[in-house]
Design a binder for these strands. Structure first.
Lengths: 233, 233
DNA sequence: CGGACGATCTGATCCAGATCAATCGCCCGC
DNA sequence: GCGGGCGATTGATCTGGATCAGATCGTCCG
């Protein structure tokens, strides 16, 4: 599905709900891959779960637009501390954090089978010079990424563990919905440890938060399968 | 000083040191304000400490390049939770997080007397179409901002309170140094509460961390005046 | 100069989340 | 089908940082 109809546009900001829901970076509705391929050589790349799309240190040569599947981004310090910085799904643009660098500064890892469009960089920049709209969209996509990061900073800096996990679930739900999937029922593609790293919590704490919310009847959790029964908290 | 010689370029990444030092967003060395003013109407704006450069909800009409003084950025949720998202100084570009939005989504507040260049947006985007180098630099500046945010996410997610404060001081030091000021001796322009908000700590915790580092002989603190005696932690 | 407010510092206590530990169950390869 | 290993769950305990409460100090203003 979606095949070559995947689009690339940042202009749409998902509606915020309750406690400052962080928003996704890219949403459908802009320049299409079809049109883009007239200016730059767009190729498709497939990954299996666990495979790296790129790793820190590798040459930075392209951005990637997720067509199908789920990935995570993470950064690691020299002394080995690791932090998941985000989860990516269809329509998300990956690799933007490496723009302006010769090599990647973070990792992108497939959480399951993925298909991504590879958009060579800086070729895409030259294309921007010829398509003003594309330039505007790329810039907006980067800005949206910044807003998204800051919204999460707010969440991590001001919410309790359980509130963070709830916010995370609502964010996943709304992103699923934006793609036409059910917002009430979905499968998490990442481990409790990944969620914990992203939310600055330990995996046990994530589990306990889910257990508690489940006990209160807000959600129904079966391993990675989540059903949202009540949208609050 | 610096007057019209302020420059705007993101390409330079400050060298990372010890525990993944977050980096600044903009560094001197690129397109000059002089050159920019040939394409867009650049105006200067002065602020006193405590004044808002912009607030969430106001129309987004310009980016700002700090020429002198210090500011902070912060975001606030509908329910009033507030989070400082960064501190800006000379050479930093402010307002990029609002690109693509009709109104600002965060606040920018002067911490002391400031002078900033106002760069009208989207006029600056049109200028980018005519100056490829400018476009590349704007994009890189945004990407650098994303890397910076992510580096702090790593710090906040993996370091203890004292390590965060130490990292913060080293970051301030290196940014001061990049501007030609002393990296060993400087005055913090923000309150303990601001630092705490940024680092996801309470102000008492910031104070205690500073006291402890001072007792260990790593730094010398006199209210907002800091002297770094030993660069480790 | 005196007063007041805001920022900083310090102490005492509390608690959310980390840590340590153990069990369970799902999935995968043989 | 079976064995092994990783991920999830749950319990017990510990602790870093939050919270609550004052005291001190610096700055601005009348």
């Amino acid at each position: 599905m979606i095949a070559t109809s995947a689009t690339f546009s940042p202009a749409i900001e998902r509606a915020h709900s309750a406690p400052t829901m962080p928003v996704a970076n890219i949403a459908p509705g802009g320049i299409s891959i079809d049109e883009l391929s007239r200016y730059v050589s767009v190729t498709q790349r497939k990954l299996n779960g666990g495979q790296y799309l790129y790793r820190a240190g590798q040459a930075f040569q392209a951005l990637y637009l997720v067509q199908a599947g789920f990935l995570k981004n993470s950064v690691t310090s020299e002394d080995g501390r690791e932090q998941v910085t985000g989860f990516r799904m269809r329509g998300d643009l990956i690799g933007v954090e490496s723009i302006g660098m010769a090599t990647h500064t973070s990792d992108a890892i497939a959480l399951d089978s993925c298909v991504v469009w590879e958009l060579p960089y800086p070729a895409i920049l030259s294309a921007c010079a010829r398509i003003p709209e594309l330039q505007s969209q790329l810039t907006s996509a980067l800005a949206a990424e910044i807003r998204n990061d800051r919204a999460w900073m707010l969440a991590l800096g001001t919410l309790s563990a359980e509130q963070r996990v709830a916010t995370f679930l609502l964010d996943v739900a709304s992103r699923h919905e934006a793609l036409g999937f059910s917002a009430r029922h979905f499968v998490l593609r990442m481990s409790r440890a990944d969620i914990g790293s992203f939310l600055a919590l330990k995996h046990e704490t994530v589990t306990r938060a889910l257990t508690r919310m489940s006990a209160q009847g807000f959600i129904d959790v079966q391993l990675r399968e989540v059903r949202i029964l009540d949208g609050d908290a």
